[in-house]
């Protein structure tokens, strides 16, 4: 069964940046890419890279931040009243 995740999630407002990668700290382990349900992390040249449009797709679970053993990912939630909305959560 093919489920297109982007079609079944809703996002509102201008979130601002809420995930930041410290490239110097990143060791390229790929943990963030492995656990991101929405596939928002790519591995490029031995480093993680966050997709440009992540603010409109992220489900705000903070898995990437939680699996980053070297603390290279800074996660804070989007601005109040913006970001993912769960209508049937």
């Amino acid at each position: 069964m093919k489920i297109e995740l982007e079609k079944i999630s809703e996002h509102v407002g201008d979130t601002g940046d809420f995930i930041k990668l410290n490239v110097d700290k990143c060791v390229g382990c790929g943990n963030c890419a492995l656990v991101c349900v929405m596939n928002l992390w790519l591995m490029r040249g031995g480093k993680a890279q966050l997709k440009d449009d992540y603010t409109q797709k992220c489900l705000e679970c903070a898995a990437c931040y939680s699996v980053c053993d070297v603390g290279a990912i800074d996660f804070s939630y989007p601005a109040g009243g913006t970001g993912v909305v769960f209508l049937k959560g």
Binding site: I8, L59, S66, F86, K88, G89
Partner: peptide, 9 residues
Amino acid sequence: KPREVQTHL
């Protein structure tokens, strides 16, 4: 039918 995807810790 699938209606919404959610993920949480």
